[in-house]
Design a protein around this nucleic acid. Structure first.
Length: 514
RNA sequence: GCGAAAGUAGCUCAAUUGGUAGAGCUCCAGCCUUCCAAGCUGGAGGUUGCGGGUUCGAGACCCGUCUUUCGCUCCA
C-alpha cells in the first residue's frame, strides 16, 4: 500500500466502489449527471447501517431525544424566514483575471453612484459660485449635469428591464458597454452573468402559470423548527430536549467535486437540541464532546479527527465548529456543530405570526428556546468509513489482498456461508444453517469457485466472518469460522454461531462504548 | 468557474508514421478439486463517452460536447 500514490489510492477506492456495487455514477448510461451518485446493493446496506447506528445512538440512547421525518417540500415562506431566499438569489459575474466573483447588480449600482458623485460635485461647485443658487434650475439647465443624469436614467432603464426579464445576457452587455473594470485586476475580461441559486426549485400545482414555486429543501433543519412545537406538545417534551431527522437535502453547488464528498443531492443527519437561553455554551461544549466520541467509537483512528472552530460565524450562530476527518484528499468537514441561538424560531414566529414559545414551569415564564445543532453528512460519513477501511495488503511474495476492514457492525453482510464442496450434502447443511441465521443477520451464500476466491470476494466487500461447512461439519456439527482481518480460522459448534455473531457484529458493541 | 490530465469489454490495460479492435481478470455453462484470487473445456460481453470534420481509410489527427480526476477558486 505504501507504494501507491495518494491520488491513485483515491482512484482505487472509487473504482472499487463501482466494481463491488457500493457507488455508481448516476445515469451512467447517459454519460452521467454531474455530481450525482447512486448507492448500489452493497452501498445501500453500509449506508443504512451507518444511519441506524447514528439514529440509535441519538434516539434510543437518549430519553429526551425523539425523531421525525418531515417532507422535502415545505411552504415557500419557510425559506424566506430562514434567510435562504434572499441570501442566494443574485446575478453573479466572475472576473477571469482576478478570479474574483461579484454581484453583477452591485457592480452596476456602484457605477451609477460614481456618476451621482460627479453630479454632486458639479452642484457643490456651482453652489459655491452663485449666491441665490437654485438647485432644481441648475440641474435642469446645466449641460454636464443633464448629460450625467440622462446617462443614469438610460442605465437604470435598461438595467431594470434586464432584471425584470431575468435577461442575464443583457446585464453582461451593460457591464461591457459601461466598460466597468474589476477593482482588483483592472480588467474587463468578464465571464457570463449567472444566476446563482443555492436552492433547486420546482412548481406545485398542475396549471403552470398559477403554480407556486416550491423549493427542494437545502437543509433538513427547517423541518424540525416548524414542527418543534408539535413535537414538544404531543410528546410532552421538557427542555432540554432534542429532535432528530435524517433525509435528503439539495444544494445547487457551483462546484461539486470529490466523488460523494460534495454532491448536489445528499443526505443529512441532524439534531436540533432545544435549551434554556443562557445555557447555550454549556450545551454546545457538551455536544461537541458527545459527537466526537461517537466518531471515535467507529475505530477508524483517533488521529484522523480534529475540531475546526469557525471564526466567521453565520448570521444565526454565536458559536460554531466542524469535526473534520482526514480523507484521502486531506482534512475536510464531516460534521458541523452550531449554537444557532433563537434565530430560526424567532424568524418563524415573525413570518408565521404564531407563538413558538415554551412555558418553563420551573421559571414560571415563557421563552423562545435556544438551539444547538449537530449536522453530519451521511454520505461524507460513508466516505470516511469506506476510505479508511479500504486496504490493499501485501501477502507473501507478489500476492496482494484487497480488503475492506469495515467496523463489523456496519458491514453489509455480517457473515458468508460456504459449503467447502458443492456435493456430499455440504450445500444442504449450509443452507439449513443459513436459513436459521438469516432471521437475525444479513448473510451471503456462495458455492461457486474455489474456497480461496470466495474468501477474497467477501474480503473485498468487508464481510467480517466466513463460515465454511466441510465434511467434519456433518459428523460433529461444527464449522470453521474465518476472521476477515487476521484470516485465522477457528472451529465452533453450529449451535454457537448465533451467539458468536451477536457478540462480534452486533450494533450493541458500538452503542455500549459510547 | 479557470487551468491541466484522462475516457477502448463489468474491471485493469494493449493496439507500430493513420491500415481487420485484442489480452488478463471477472461473468455464464460444465468438468475437476478437502480451506485462501488453483487447473481444464466451451461461451457471452464493443457503434473505442457522444457529435461533427480531415482522409481511400480514424481508437489514433482537428473542432465541439459530456463525464471524471488533480490544482486554484467558492462553500450560511
Amino acid at each position: 500500500m505504501s507504494n501507491i500514490k495518494p491520488e491513485d489510492f483515491f482512484k482505487n477506492i472509487i473504482s472499487h466502489s463501482k466494481e463491488y456495487g457500493f457507488i455508481f455514477q448516476n445515469s451512467e448510461i447517459y454519460d452521467g449527471l454531474s455530481a450525482v451518485y447512486d448507492y448500489g446493493q452493497m452501498g445501500v446496506e453500509l449506508k443504512k447501517n451507518i444511519r441506524d447506528y447514528w439514529w440509535k445512538s441519538m434516539v434510543q440512547m437518549h430519553e429526551n431525544i425523539v425523531g421525525i421525518d418531515s417532507a422535502i417540500f415545505m411552504h415557500p415562506t419557510t425559506w424566506k424566514a430562514s434567510g435562504h431566499v434572499d441570501a442566494f438569489n443574485d446575478p453573479l459575474i466572475d472576473n477571469k483575471e482576478s478570479k474574483k466573483r461579484y454581484r453583477a447588480d452591485v457592480l452596476i449600482e456602484e457605477y451609477i453612484s460614481k456618476i451621482e458623485d460627479k453630479i454632486k460635485k458639479e452642484i457643490e461647485k456651482a453652489a459655491a459660485r452663485f449666491e441665490n443658487f437654485d438647485r432644481t434650475l441648475f440641474c435642469s439647465t446645466n449641460g454636464r449635469v443633464k448629460e450625467y443624469q440622462e446617462k443614469i436614467d438610460a442605465i437604470n432603464e435598461s438595467f431594470k428591464s434586464a432584471l425584470n426579464n431575468n435577461d442575464l445576457e443583457e446585464i453582461k452587455k451593460i457591464i461591457i458597454n459601461l466598460e466597468i473594470v474589476c477593482p482588483i485586476s483592472g480588467s474587463r475580461n468578464w465571464t457570463d452573468v449567472r444566476q446563482f441559486n443555492l436552492m433547486f426549485s420546482t412548481s406545485m400545482g398542475s396549471v403552470s402559470d398559477e403554480a407556486n414555486t416550491i423549493y427542494l429543501r437545502p437543509e433538513t433543519a427547517q423541518g424540525i423548527f416548524v414542527n418543534y412545537l408539535n413535537v414538544q406538545k404531543t410528546g410532552r417534551m421538557k427542555i432540554p430536549f432534542g429532535i432528530v431527522q435524517t433525509g435528503k437535502a439539495f444544494r445547487n453547488e457551483i462546484v461539486a467535486r470529490q466523488f460523494i464528498f460534495r454532491m448536489r443531492e445528499f443526505e443529512q443527519m441532524e439534531m436540533q437540541f432545544f435549551i434554556k437561553p443562557g445555557t447555550e455554551i454549556e450545551w454546545y461544549e457538551y455536544w461537541k464532546k458527545i459527537r466526537l466520541s461517537w466518531h471515535l467509537s467507529l475505530g477508524l483512528g483517533n488521529e484522523k479527527y480534529r475540531f475546526h472552530d469557525h471564526l466567521k460565524l453565520a448570521h444565526y450562530a454565536n458559536a460554531a465548529c466542524d469535526i473534520e476527518f482526514e480523507f484521502p484528499f486531506g482534512f475536510k468537514e464531516l460534521e458541523g456543530i452550531h449554537s444557532r441561538t433563537d434565530f430560526d424560531l424567532k424568524q418563524h414566529e415573525q413570518f408565521s405570526n404564531k407563538k413558538l414559545q415554551y412555558f418553563d414551569s420551573e421559571l414560571n415564564q415563557s421563552y423562545v428556546p435556544f438551539v444547538i445543532e449537530t449536522s453530519v453528512g451521511l454520505d461524507r460519513l460513508f466516505l470516511s468509513v469506506l476510505s479508511s477501511a479500504f486496504k490493499i495488503e501485501k501477502l507473501e511474495e507478489d500476492e496482494t489482498r484487497t480488503v475492506l476492514s469495515l467496523p463489523a457492525a456496519l458491514a453489509p453482510y455480517k457473515a458468508a456461508i460456504f459449503p467447502l464442496l458443492k456435493k456430499d450434502g455440504l450445500p444442504e447443511l449450509s443452507e439449513s444453517i443459513m436459513n436459521a441465521l438469516k432471521l437475525d443477520f444479513n448473510l451471503a451464500y456462495d458455492e461457486k469457485d474455489t474456497i480461496g476466491k470466495r474468501y477474497r470476494r467477501q474480503d473485498a466487500i468487508g464481510t467480517p466472518f466466513c463460515i465454511t461447512v466441510d465434511h467434519q461439519s456433518i459428523e460433529d456439527k461444527t464449522v470453521t469460522i474465518r476472521d476477515r482481518d487476521t484470516m485465522k480460522q477457528t472451529r465452533i459448534k453450529i449451535d454457537e454461531i448465533k451467539t458468536f455473531l451477536n457478540q462480534n457484529v452486533g450494533i450493541q458493541n458500538l452503542l455500549k462504548n459510547l
